[in-house]
Computed example of a mutant assay.
Amino acid sequence: MDLVGAWRLVEWRVVDAGGRVSHPFGTDATGLLCYTPDGHMSATIARAGRAPLPGAGRGQTPPEAPAEAFTSFLAYAGRYEVRQGHIAHDVEVALDPALAGTVQVRELNADGDRLVLAADEGGRWHTLIWERS
């Protein structure tokens, strides 16, 4: 399976223990997942239609605006390794400092130009579907 290249997000869905489905950044979230031949990766996901920070660049951004920008965007990068039907993302740097230094392990299913990564996180099943860009 050749993961090297760029992948665009199709869907990020979460199913809780009761079977309820949600989409953390909406059904129209955007994202880009990149794998390099030398074992590096980066992932970014954003809620669609994010508004620019008001007053950005002029020192007039209201204090609540960066919090909204933070909660509508996910980003991390590091190294990756494929391990027996799973992929491990060894996070070196992340928007959320709590992710740095962690290893994010996902079930890995690839079929041509489609990539599905899935994992149980706190009793909720996260599935991210990507298409080769």
Rank of each mutant, 00 (worst) to 15 (best):
residue 83 R to C: 05
residue 80 Y to K: 00
residue 95 L to N: 09
residue 78 G to I: 00
residue 45 I to Q: 07
residue 103 V to W: 01
residue 91 V to N: 00
residue 47 R to T: 04
residue 59 G to Y: 09
residue 56 A to H: 13
residue 53 L to G: 06
residue 41 M to S: 00
residue 104 Q to I: 11
residue 84 Q to W: 12
residue 79 R to Q: 07
residue 77 A to C: 13
residue 91 V to D: 00
residue 80 Y to L: 04
residue 65 A to K: 03
residue 85 G to N: 08
residue 95 L to W: 12
residue 39 G to V: 05
residue 63 P to V: 04
residue 91 V to H: 08
residue 46 A to L: 10
residue 75 A to L: 02
residue 103 V to M: 05
residue 69 A to R: 02
residue 81 E to M: 04
residue 47 R to A: 14
residue 105 V to I: 11
residue 49 G to C: 10
residue 105 V to Y: 02
residue 39 G to P: 14
residue 83 R to M: 07
residue 40 H to Q: 10
residue 67 A to I: 15
residue 89 H to E: 01
residue 51 A to L: 14
residue 88 A to F: 05
residue 73 F to L: 09
residue 59 G to M: 00
residue 82 V to L: 09
residue 89 H to Q: 02
residue 81 E to Q: 15
residue 101 G to V: 03
residue 53 L to M: 08
residue 91 V to Q: 02
residue 98 A to H: 13
residue 83 R to Q: 12
residue 57 G to V: 01
residue 94 A to E: 04
residue 98 A to R: 15
residue 41 M to P: 00
residue 65 A to P: 08
residue 87 I to Q: 00
residue 56 A to V: 06
residue 108 L to Q: 03
residue 86 H to D: 11
residue 58 R to E: 10
residue 104 Q to H: 13
residue 79 R to W: 08
residue 82 V to H: 06
residue 89 H to T: 04
residue 45 I to A: 11
residue 39 G to T: 06
residue 84 Q to K: 13
residue 60 Q to L: 15
residue 41 M to W: 00
residue 104 Q to C: 09
residue 44 T to L: 06
residue 76 Y to W: 09
residue 101 G to F: 08
residue 82 V to N: 07
residue 50 R to C: 09
residue 51 A to N: 12
residue 40 H to I: 00
residue 40 H to A: 12
residue 98 A to P: 13
residue 80 Y to F: 15
residue 81 E to A: 15
residue 83 R to T: 14
residue 53 L to F: 07
residue 106 R to W: 11
residue 98 A to K: 12
residue 99 L to T: 08
residue 99 L to Y: 15
residue 53 L to N: 03
residue 102 T to K: 12
residue 65 A to T: 04
residue 63 P to H: 00
residue 54 P to S: 07
residue 73 F to Y: 14
residue 57 G to L: 03
residue 84 Q to G: 14
residue 53 L to T: 00
residue 92 E to A: 12
residue 46 A to N: 09
residue 52 P to S: 05
residue 45 I to R: 02
residue 100 A to C: 13
residue 64 E to K: 11
residue 60 Q to E: 14
residue 86 H to P: 02
residue 103 V to T: 15
residue 56 A to S: 13
residue 53 L to C: 06
residue 97 P to T: 02
residue 76 Y to A: 02
residue 71 T to L: 12
residue 82 V to Q: 06
residue 76 Y to L: 03
residue 106 R to Q: 07
residue 71 T to C: 13
residue 89 H to N: 11
residue 79 R to M: 05
residue 95 L to K: 04
residue 58 R to W: 10
residue 53 L to Q: 04
residue 51 A to Q: 14
residue 53 L to A: 11
residue 103 V to E: 14
residue 56 A to L: 12
residue 59 G to N: 09
residue 59 G to I: 08
residue 80 Y to W: 07
residue 78 G to D: 02
residue 84 Q to A: 15
residue 95 L to Y: 09
residue 103 V to Y: 03
residue 75 A to P: 10
residue 50 R to Q: 09
residue 102 T to W: 01
residue 84 Q to M: 04
residue 51 A to C: 09
residue 83 R to W: 08
residue 47 R to K: 14
residue 52 P to Y: 07
residue 94 A to T: 11
residue 100 A to G: 14
residue 93 V to I: 12
residue 50 R to V: 08
residue 67 A to F: 10
residue 50 R to I: 08
residue 67 A to S: 10
residue 44 T to F: 07
residue 94 A to R: 05
residue 43 A to Y: 02
residue 86 H to K: 11
residue 55 G to S: 11
